[in-house]
Simulated scan of single mutants.
Amino acid sequence: MEHAQNDSPEAGSKRTWLVVNPASGSYDDAAFEALCECCTQNAIDLDRVIRFPEQDKLPTAAELDAAGVDFVTIYTGDGTINALVTGLYGWSGAILILPGGTMNLLSIRLHGDVETPDIVARVGKGDFRKERPCVVRCDAGDALAGLMVGPGTAWGEVREAMRDMDIVGFATQAVTAIGESAAGTKVRIAEPRVGKEEGYPLLVLTPEQGTMSVAAYHSETVGDYAQQGVALLQRDFRKGPHDDLGQMDAMTIELAAEAGTSTDEVLPTLIDGESAELPRRARFTVVPCEVDLIVTEAQA
């Protein structure tokens, strides 16, 4: 279940550090300037701007406490958000996550599908609360926005090339992704036994309120690959052909093939868009985030 804090934040607590990632393909100078102006208009003091990783490292809990910062604001993609949030586990402050990436799944979950000025205005008025929404945990880390497992994670590289407007890279990675999805060792849910026994190229686990939704993606025909391409052009390859396998609070995923002679067989994994590797059989659970996030929507 969600772990909401009982103490309501005061509108006067508006001193923040802002984390941005200028190297991100979704970063925009004009949008950054507009955000700074929006904070000023809503009486939020940007005490410091951290340009990660270009100039600065991510702040630590000790640094934030020493500076008397009430909350940290982050305007980046999922990968940097994950690094900041998990790096601040145990901190007594809170984190405001703004839609600064391509898909902004976590921001939408916390604030609804609204623009940055609306979120900042709510915070400026004190119209927010602190909560610890659920994340998906495995031995490789915690996923706040989503976790993907299987050879189909190669489609994530296609999305990155597309985001960076790398046409050659897009074409190259698309060919690789099709090959991996078709020929790579599929993955299946071993516990509980749901879905196809022969497995899928990609399983996507998305944390929700007290649970995680599970979607199994398949690319078995030319038509499937065409649908995947259309989904990419719409900036969301999750819209590709898939089966919804329901809601779970824990599961074990394994390679669908029998163990071979190789000792380095792994589960290819993307945690909030960042590559990771797990053993050929791994456990995934739903747990509460270990630091407060700022929520301005009715449901997190």
Rank of each mutant, 00 (worst) to 15 (best):
H3D: 09
N6T: 10
D7M: 05
S8L: 15
G12P: 00
K14F: 00
P22E: 07
S24R: 13
S24G: 15
S24N: 15
S26P: 07
A30W: 06
E33Q: 13
A34Q: 14
A34T: 06
A34F: 04
L35T: 01
C38G: 13
N42P: 09
R48P: 00
V49T: 15
V49G: 09
R51T: 10
F52N: 11
K57Q: 11
A62S: 12
V69I: 15
V69W: 09
F71C: 01
G79W: 13
G79H: 14
G79F: 13
T80Y: 05
V85A: 04
Y89D: 11
G90R: 10
G93W: 02
G93S: 04
L98K: 13
G100N: 11
G100L: 07
G100P: 09
M103T: 15
L106Y: 02
D113V: 11
V114Q: 04
E115L: 12
E115R: 14
A121C: 12
A121D: 13
D127F: 08
D127E: 15
K130V: 05
V135M: 14
R137G: 00
D142A: 04
A143W: 09
A145P: 01
L147C: 07
M148D: 03
V149F: 04
V149W: 02
P151H: 08
G152L: 02
G156C: 05
R159C: 09
A161H: 02
A161V: 01
M165P: 00
D166S: 14
V168F: 11
A171R: 14
T172Y: 05
T172E: 12
A174N: 09
T176E: 15
E180R: 14
E180T: 08
A183P: 02
A183G: 08
V187G: 06
R188P: 01
I189D: 02
A190F: 10
V194D: 06
G195D: 04
G195S: 05
G195P: 03
G195K: 03
K196Q: 04
E197V: 07
E198F: 06
P207N: 02
G210T: 06
M212W: 08
S213R: 14
V214H: 03
A216W: 07
Y217G: 03
H218F: 13
S219D: 03
T221Y: 03
V222I: 12
G223E: 11
D224I: 07
A226G: 01
L233T: 14
Q234Y: 12
H242L: 03
Q247F: 10
E254D: 06
L255K: 04
A256S: 11
E258C: 00
G260P: 04
D264G: 09
D272M: 05
G273T: 02
G273S: 02
A276K: 09
E277M: 10
P279R: 03
P279A: 05
A282E: 01
F284Q: 04
I294G: 05
V295I: 11
V295Y: 01
V295F: 03
A300H: 00
